[in-house]
């Protein structure tokens, strides 16, 4: 007898539902296929043929996954993405910006780390210390909405990603403006600025946010599968 649960779990791997709910769906669909397979065997089909026909009856797994997700979330996929990624990510970004301005307002200054390179790196220690907490908050919100592990971690590092996009857009735009007004551009200097700003304002904060997101996933965001509850 094929391991239908494993087969279905692999095919519905990207079904972004809360873990317990997903386990229930997989178990139910697997049970359906198992019944179909057994019925075919009773009708005289060879095991290999019955297996192939049973899987064939399921049709397009992407469609199965999408329809189940629509039915469970009560709307199209965009709604789910909004709740699992964009809303927690934007919340994390708003909180991190508010905390940064709060620290600046109350006189906590960034610490400058000196190194042998051409530029110094600015490390804002109090703000960095707050980021794991903010990453954890975003991760918990995303996980509560049924985000997959990847989505949860993406939501937790969202502020750093958004800042990276902003910096990457800001420099080319700035260069265009400088070219228009006739100031000569030193590309090496621009690249150095992107690198040093990137380390202090993107890379290190992203690591801090990711640490929070990972910790939250391990400590707070796991749920018992609802099927186990039903079994007891």
């Amino acid at each position: 007898m094929p391991d239908w649960k494993n087969i279905v779990a692999r095919r519905l791997d990207l079904l972004s539902l809360p873990p317990g709910e997903k386990a229930d769906v997989i178990a139910e669909v697997a049970a359906h296929l198992e019944e179909t397979f057994c019925e075919m065997r009773r009708c005289g089909f060879q095991e290999e043929d019955a297996f192939r026909r049973t899987l064939g009856q399921a049709g397009n797994w992407k469609s199965v996954q999408r329809e189940i997700l629509f039915a469970k979330s009560g709307g199209p996929h965009m709604g789910t993405r909004l709740r699992q990624l964009w809303a927690p990510g934007l919340l994390g970004m708003a909180l991190s910006t508010a905390v940064l301005f709060g620290f600046l307002k109350f006189g906590f200054h960034p610490r400058i780390v000196y190194w042998n390179g051409p530029k110094n790196i600015l490390v804002y220690v109090p703000w960095l210390l707050s980021l794991p907490v903010l990453g954890a908050i975003a991760a918990c919100f995303s996980s509560r909405e049924g985000g997959s592990r990847r989505t949860v971690l993406l939501a937790s590092v969202f502020p750093a990603l958004a800042f990276a996009v902003a910096i990457l857009l800001m420099f080319p735009i700035g260069m265009v403006i400088e070219r228009i007004i006739g100031i000569p551009i030193d590309f090496i200097q621009v690249a150095t600025v992107i690198l040093t700003e990137g380390i202090g304002w993107i890379l290190v904060p992203a690591v801090a946010l990711l640490v929070g997101g990972l910790l939250a996933q391990f400590l707070f965001c796991r749920r018992p599968p609802s099927q186990s509850t039903a079994l007891s």
């Binding site: 359906h32 199965v64 039915a71 009560g74």
Partner: peptide
Amino acid sequence: TLAALYPMLYRMEQQRWIRGS
């Protein structure tokens, strides 16, 4: 098909017309 049956059952369950256990 699987893509039709279970989504429909889940929708009907959410509308509280049926209950699964």
